[in-house]
Design a protein around this nucleic acid. Sequence first.
DNA 1: TCGATACGAAACGGTAGCGTATCGAAATGG
DNA 2: CCATTTCGATACGCTACCGTTTCGTATCGA
Lengths: 192, 192
Amino acid sequence: MPEPSGVGRPRDVRRDAAIHEAALALLTEVGYDQLSIEAIAARAGVAKTTIYRRYRDKAALVAAAVEQRQGSAPPEPVAGGLRENLLAVVGWLAREIEEQEIGLLGALFAGMRGDARLADEMRRILRRDQAAMTDRLPGEELAPGAAELFAEVAPAVIVHRIVFAGERCDERFVRHLVDDILFPLLRKGIQS
Amino acid sequence: MPEPSGVGRPRDVRRDAAIHEAALALLTEVGYDQLSIEAIAARAGVAKTTIYRRYRDKAALVAAAVEQRQGSAPPEPVAGGLRENLLAVVGWLAREIEEQEIGLLGALFAGMRGDARLADEMRRILRRDQAAMTDRLPGEELAPGAAELFAEVAPAVIVHRIVFAGERCDERFVRHLVDDILFPLLRKGIQS
DNA sequence: TCGATACGAAACGGTAGCGTATCGAAATGG
DNA sequence: CCATTTCGATACGCTACCGTTTCGTATCGA
């Protein structure tokens, strides 16, 4: 892929944005396999050549699009104890996964199977997002290793519910996840 | 669609089996989207006509194949306490998911997106398998509602690890899942 | 002004799978 | 024997998308 050399007409950054946006939108709609370069070009209002000038193939395009994208930031620590912060973070996480990432993750989940590069890229990004998340938990009331435990359990249960159970993550579920699972698990002073 | 009427040459059940087998094998190998009727026919050593006579389309075929298939049975309750039984069941579950179902689930996870019928069918089957699992836990040492909690947490964490973390479920992980998560969560006498 | 590059539009040949149709042979039950 | 159905083999037209090429225009730096 020839990088832009600086000489000649420069690339239009708005087209980069349009391509990324279209790619992510279609990715969540139809999935990775059904995703076609032609559809992305059409949705972005861009010629196919403009895409092939930037990316070698679909995997490279998707990786770049997901790379660039940023979700909303996790909530700041609130006043109150561990439970209140857990409710805030889990609520945010559930909403985040449900609204945006689930189609994305589902699509990538499938797409990863055939493309090891894409798989590694996705896992790198997921880890990055998780790291930003576990910072939001107050350390005082936490059992040792609780942050890792949270990152291991909370997304898992949320994703599992949405995908395999096919149910939504309403307020009731968030409270259930916090009160029945996370809080007793992460609270300091729990003896094995 | 036309059911065999009884008159004329009967259908060969070995071909049904061959079709199911080929479908499941290819499903785990290439995924739902990449799965093609032609490839299934080739792998099964069967003409396309033979498949289209039985199933209207890909979704119907896959649903039937997954329906028929049975994994190994969960282990019988062993002597010893809750922890030993948890180790046995979780070890079996991890192996089951890792060996067979992960490719299957991944493929279906993606395929479900486009086909609501298939999605419902899959969830029905998953629930059936989970029900057979939670029977294997001894009721005496369990907190109330622990069986549902187990079904909610254990598969979620296992799947999440395999898919999103990209790591295997070795003996060490099974112990971690039981000792650090499930056992403290399910044990009777845990006070919120 | 000029060279180089980016862009849109369109066309291209190629691949892959779809679902259907046709044909002859084989297997049933009446 | 015979109607009926299954099965393999093969061909068919169709659609979608691939990745590339061409051409005319637009937009930059020098």
